[in-house]
Design a protein around this nucleic acid. Structure first.
Length: 427
RNA sequence: GUGGGCGUGGCCUAGCGGUUAAGGCGCCAGGUUGUGGCCCUGGAGAUCGAGGGUUCAAAUCCCUCCGUCCACCCCA
């Protein structure tokens, strides 16, 4: 029991750590990003899918990877009352693949093109652009392993960022091989590192065991020389992977997508194969990634489905908004009332209600003033809300069935029949 | 998980040991009888994050906890 409860006062609550409210002032940014995502998905023919906020824990435990931070320390795991082991969604892809398998989407024409905007949960330490609940716009193209689809998905992300009005972003691209060639490379990498394990940082010793690919992007100064001399993944790619990557690069060149090959780029989830990519501003800040993803050709099988290739990306809306603000992209603001109805008597209040309904029926935003407030107060309110017109209705107007219609921009006033207000606002 | 900064009315900030904690924004109300934006006046609103300690005296110093922000890590 808290101190305040002992004192008999109700406890005050704050949102849980790392969980943010989106307040009305922020909403225009959200709406802008969501609308843009929806529009671009429409252009590419990606259809919306909505999977549940929680799944059987195994959906993530089996796919994301045993050594990953997500599984090891970030998942929100809980039991329901029936004893089922569940997990709040930590990432978007696994649940979509589960739905793909469960609903037999393999029998649709492939690839199945899906898109979603949904909250993800990770128990991580919050900081700028990092939350315990964040919202991802994600896209998945499932059932076609050709690099043409890789190019399409990357183009979708690229187009999306461009449509958002973001500038100066670039694409980092890499291939991390597949089940055929990656094991051999990892063995080679381990062989190379093994004699030097006492020279590298503690994190790298752990990476050596759990996620050797990550050895390559350690930022510790002492680990750098070793990285420089490490065997390169690209030298170990099988012919199929090499060809896949080469064709993808050709497609991207055609599209004019500006990218840099980053052999250090690996992903935090184990299921990725071949293509991995990440978009970020040319001038990198922390947490500035604007979207990243990759191919996951073995994922479907991990969830008991047929062998099915797939590729997708996720983009964090909070971070996109961070970048939108940093780049001062202008977004459409909140809407304002077309008509604010100020009323001065109880009878006028009733009329105001009727007028508001008529105006709204004509497709325009109407707001009724607060009862019992002075005209001055209502005018101030109308102005603060950015109303275009104010209809003033007092005893004088009521007597003749009219309203005084004031244009707040040019201060002009005229009398309008109350019944005509719905249409009197013009264009 | 590691390191650092910060916690004063809804928001931003002043005060950094000594009378009733100050200002700005916002909110509310007035500035003649029914009229906004600027301006003026007034008002509401703070147990100075919480607990403990030092002191005659603490928002101000010390400790603990909590929260928050930033960075590392990781990632969206």
């Amino acid at each position: 029991m808290s101190e305040s409860e002992k004192a008999g006062k109700p406890q005050k609550f704050a949102a849980p750590r790392g969980i943010a409210d989106v307040l009305p002032d922020e909403w225009p940014y959200w709406q802008y990003v969501r609308d843009t995502a929806e529009r671009v998905c429409g252009l590419f023919g990606y259809h919306r899918i909505e999977t549940p906020t929680f799944e059987h824990a195994g959906v993530y435990l089996r796919t994301v990877g045993a050594g990953t931070d997500i599984v090891e320390k970030e998942m929100y795991l809980f039991e329901d009352r029936g004893g089922g082991r569940l997990a709040l969604r930590p990432e978007g892809t696994a649940g979509v693949i589960r739905a793909y398998i469960e609903h037999g989407m393999a029998s649709l024409s492939q690839p199945v093109r899906l898109a979603y905007v949904s909250p993800n949960f990770r128990y991580d330490r919050p900081q700028a652009g990092r939350y315990r609940q964040h919202t991802q716009f994600g896209v998945e193209a499932i059932g076609d392993g050709d690099p043409l689809v890789d190019a399409e998905v990357i183009d979708l992300l690229w187009t999306f960022l461009g449509e958002l009005g973001l500038r100066d972003f670039i694409l980092k691209l890499n291939t991390i091989g597949d089940q055929a060639c990656r094991p051999a490379y990892i063995a080679k990498l381990r062989e190379y590192y093994r004699p030097h394990l006492d020279a590298v940082c503690a994190d790298c010793r752990m990476r050596f065991e759990k996620n050797p690919l990550r050895l390559l992007d350690c930022k510790e100064e002492r680990c750098r020389p070793l990285i420089a001399g490490a065997p390169r993944q690209h030298d170990f790619l099988c012919d199929a992977c090499r060809d896949h990557f080469a064709r993808l690069r050709g497609y991207l060149a055609t599209l004019g997508v500006e990218y840099t090959i980053d052999e250090q780029l690996v992903r935090g989830l184990d299921y990725y194969t071949r293509t991995v990519f990440e978009c970020h501003p040319r001038v990198e800040g922390s947490q500035s990634s604007m979207g990243s993803g990759g191919r996951y050709d073995g994922l479907c099988e991990l969830l008991g489905g047929p062998p099915t290739p797939g590729i997708g990306f996720g983009a964090g809306i909070e971070r996109l908004i961070l970048n939108i603000k940093r780049q001062e992209v202008s977004v459409p603001g909140a809407t304002a009332p077309d008509l604010y109805i100020a009323h001065l008597t109880p009878e006028a209040a009733t009329a105001a209600l009727r007028i508001a309904r008529a105006v709204r029926a004509a497709g325009r935003q109407a707001m009724v003033g607060s009862a019992g407030k002075s005209l001055k107060a209502q005018m101030r309110h109308a102005n603060a809300r950015g109303a275009r017109y104010v209809a003033i209705i007092g005893a004088e107007e009521m007597a003749v069935g009219e309203a005084t219609l004031r244009n707040l921009a040019d201060h002009s006033e005229r009398r309008v029949r109350i019944d005509d207000l719905g249409t009197a606002l013009g264009g």
